[in-house]
Design a protein around this nucleic acid. Structure first.
Lengths: 202, 202
DNA sequence: TATTGTCTTAACCGCATAGTTAAACCAGTT
DNA sequence: AACTGGTTTAACTATGCGGTTAAGACAATA
């Protein structure tokens, strides 16, 4: 294994990432990936055994960039309000740089739901216990509406992720072309946290 | 055109619907659709010119069952609170009967964003003006937090749709298998409207 | 310089799959 | 009974595509 080895493997993975994201794992063609990586088609099979292997590798990389952020922040020691602001802010910014990730991941999971397992395994058991305790304490103190941590998490993630995943449909319904939709997303970076926190008031 | 004519066409469309929903438009095979419809493969080409034609027909039917409901209710004469409760209630119930629709539509739009046009065309211009007026009136009267109708709509639809579209991922993160996830969705039918309306309080 | 192991390629294979064709079927009509 | 038009099928074609193979390029080692 020399230096150029893993570099080539990386180039292939990047190319595969790009192609899979725009075509989906059934729509992607090994030849197109090879072209995009600037290598021969057989090399793809040399590094990754099959199309399936490449597909799984790409999916893992994509999913691994999406999930740990959420669980990490929600399971941290931060204040509840800070968790919300941090997640909305940081995650929306990250997604702005990778706008096709949510659509791709949702799509892949729709057709290969079993793939989620290996991605989630390294994150360990219940990441919600910490958050649950915080929410209960605040609720008892009358500072917060009682809400289960599952509901908290799903609602917050829905508000953040859905507009990216459903972009074409929202774009069309609201009549917001390209840049104007980006502006809309940018605006949400400011409004969503307030909206969400407001919903938690007792 | 006799009676069995359009009946066959319908059977094909139903079969295609089922196959496309579980495989996606690239993953679906004409043979599998023919088998599921109990007809010869050539018949698919007789009624719908190509795979693309069939794919478009299925997508239109699927999307047309999703969108008008939303726009219909939000653009109606109902009270704002009733709109929220009606949409959460009715839509969640509908989705419980068609749980794969959102994932399929999001997936298809991700890879063929242009297809949205023809689906949305029949719904006409701005369906949000009515809602916008209501929201502004209530906000002026101090009964509601000021919120733009676009944000209102996107937030509400996110909360309702996302859990269906992202089912496998939520199921795994929360550790809710099959029936318990259904129970979770069922519970949301009650909680989401309150959560959303609470967020709108001034 | 010969040897070895890794990396890369061109050429090839076989099958799955979208699409075509020509003939058969079947109702209704004359 | 013969004709006509829409409907359905079996059999076929062409090719796109995932995967293989055998050989070359190239660097490190001896």
């Amino acid at each position: 294994m020399n230096a150029s080895d893993s570099e080539t493997e990386q180039r292939i993975l990047d190319a595969a990432h790009a192609v899979f994201l725009r075509r989906g794992s059934s729509g992607a063609r090994m030849q197109e990936i090879a072209d995009e990586a600037g290598v021969n088609k057989a090399l793809l099979h040399y590094y990754f055994r099959s199309k399936e292997g490449l597909s799984v590798a790409v999916f893992h990389r994509a999913a691994a960039s999406l999930f740990p952020r959420i669980v990490g922040i929600l399971g941290s020691e931060l204040d509840v309000e800070d968790k919300v602001r941090e997640l909305v802010q940081g995650y929306t910014e990250f997604l702005a740089g990778h706008p096709y990730l949510p659509g791709f991941v949702i799509s892949e999971l729709h057709y290969h739901p079993e793939r989620i397992r290996q991605v989630l395994a390294p994150m360990g058991g219940a990441p919600l216990s910490q958050l649950g305790a915080q929410l209960e304490t605040l609720a008892r103190a009358g500072k917060l509406r009682p809400i289960r941590p599952e509901e908290f998490m799903v609602n917050l993630v829905s508000l953040i992720l859905f507009p990216f995943a459903a972009r074409p449909m929202i774009e069309a319904v609201l009549g917001l072309e390209g840049e104007r939709f980006d502006a809309f997303l940018e605006e949400r970076r400011r409004t969503v946290a307030d909206f969400f926190l407001n919903a938690l008031r007792p």
